[in-house]
Design a protein around this nucleic acid. Structure first.
Lengths: 273, 273
DNA sequence: GCCGGAATGGAATAAATATTCTATCTCTAA
DNA sequence: TTAGAGATAGAATATTTATTCCATTCCGGC
């Protein structure tokens, strides 16, 4: 065994994982990846369970533990069990644990955002209008090029959509307004637009939606409520009520909706081929 | 056995403990007291260990478990283990199932993404390392300009951070690599870098982090696990285990972490003024 | 294509751990 | 003080879980 010493704490464990991961055979790599992404489970799982998770034989997991410098799985597990100390028995307890670290500590803030995100997601699932969603997918699936606009706060959403469409081989164009350049002339017959804006609404976004709509192109609006200026005749509205925390918005719900839209359109297109 | 049903969650467990503890023989009382004060250890201990802790024979602990309505110690432990570890169903399977069924409605897909997002958030709350977070905030709060890099899938995160910093009047620079232009010379003494990348890692992101680190600038890495190439010496790691759903990633947890970082840095700076 | 070493899967074995059983103890009520 | 019920300790057993071992497969160099 060329392994000099077993890691003595989680940090050393991580270092060791990093050091070892340079050049690893297939199964060992699977072990490394699974363990590093599921460190929280090591303390409470059996080798068999972890091995199954990593899609590996228990004996492979054993060999990997030894590769890290432990005598075997049990020794590694002992490390994680001893560190476990901070009890996290329940979801709400976890949050209050985070909050307890101090009223305005970063972890307390994180707890708030996590909470807000969860709430937003739950609300999204409850309030999204399935018919609008279907309609949006149907229209986008038929489009040639999908134009995207979302500025400032909404820009991450638009750029994620751009990434997703690219990955699925769907032609799309992100109107990012760099240099204040207006590319509305790029809208062509057969195209469609996804416009994203929340209060305070961006005029450029509304303008582009209006332009597309005027030219008879299908427009899908991701926006926040029924009074949004994006609610133009013929525009398919997808309403998202994101829970604000302070003046910042977690975007969890909006992003989830956006991904859904992208993946649905993608699979609809592939099915059509 | 007069025990009707085993507790199904921690709350029921506590109720049961409360109900039962009215009038208890000596050893059983010791068990009850020890367990209620060391609930966090139940998931990671053996009967023998817990019995020793309560200064009781293992068989006594067994009887006590049964008194609570469990079939034995193992069943009780299973409860605590399952509560601790958020179970991750295999999302890629679920997605391909959805696809195979063909008639996957967008709303069904949305439900899956909402679910994945919620799980990611829960896991984030459970696994985030509060100390690293504090350290990251402290370093960034002192920086002059905060450089940001995150490409492809991580670009929405980087661009959101850019938006948030701008809104809070914090000087930042988004390295978006448009035109393949490398702006690493923009890194100056007193600056800091937030680098974001997930598997498959982007070389440009790693390179910039390396460059900043080499020049002695503080680097905060938002990445996915201990094997990430961003785990360089001196780099503060913030690990996010986002639940993948097929080849897409909901980003809910990552975004929540990013916002937390931004807002914490912002308020830390204002406090310093 | 063939050899040799590394990697792997799976069954066999060993160890740890939970659970049950019974003899013994303790306490209470008559 | 002494039945007798309940409680307890500790050993015996059953079960689960870790670990080892070896035959087979895979892969890179010749």
């Amino acid at each position: 065994m060329n392994s000099p010493a077993a890691p003595r704490d989680i940090e050393e464990f991580n270092d060791r994982l990093q050091a070892v991961s340079a050049d690893l055979p297939r199964r060992m790599r699977q072990c490394a990846e699974y363990l590093s992404e599921n460190m929280d489970r090591i303390a409470v799982s059996t080798v068999a369970e972890l091995a199954a998770g990593a899609e590996v034989q228990p004996s492979a997991m054993m060999r990997f533990c030894q590769m890290l410098g432990f005598s075997g799985f049990s020794e590694m597990q002992r490390l994680f069990r001893s560190v476990y100390a901070v009890s996290l028995p329940d979801y709400s307890d976890r949050l209050s644990n985070l909050r307890d670290r101090g009223a305005d500590s970063p972890s307390a803030l994180l707890a708030e955002f996590v909470d807000a995100g969860r709430l937003s997601l739950e609300r999204l699932a409850a309030t999204v209008d399935a018919r609008s969603l279907d309609e949006a997918v149907a229209k986008l699936a038929q489009a040639h090029t999908i134009h995207l606009i979302g500025l400032r706060r909404s820009f991450p959403i638009a750029s994620y959509l751009s990434y997703a469409f690219e990955k699925m081989g769907i032609s799309s164009m992100l109107h990012d307004m760099t240099g204040q350049m207006d590319h509305r002339h790029a809208l062509r017959e057969g195209d469609a637009l996804i416009a994203i804006t929340f209060a305070p609404y961006r005029q450029e976004t509304v303008d582009l939606a209006q332009a597309a709509s005027d030219r008879g192109l299908p427009v899908v609006a991701i926006t926040d409520n029924a009074m949004s200026p994006l609610r133009l005749p013929g525009v398919v509205p997808l309403l998202v009520a994101e829970v604000d925390f302070g003046e910042f918005r977690a975007l969890s719900a909006t992003l989830s909706l956006a991904i859904t839209l992208a993946v649905s359109v993608g699979s609809r297109r592939n099915a059509a081929k």
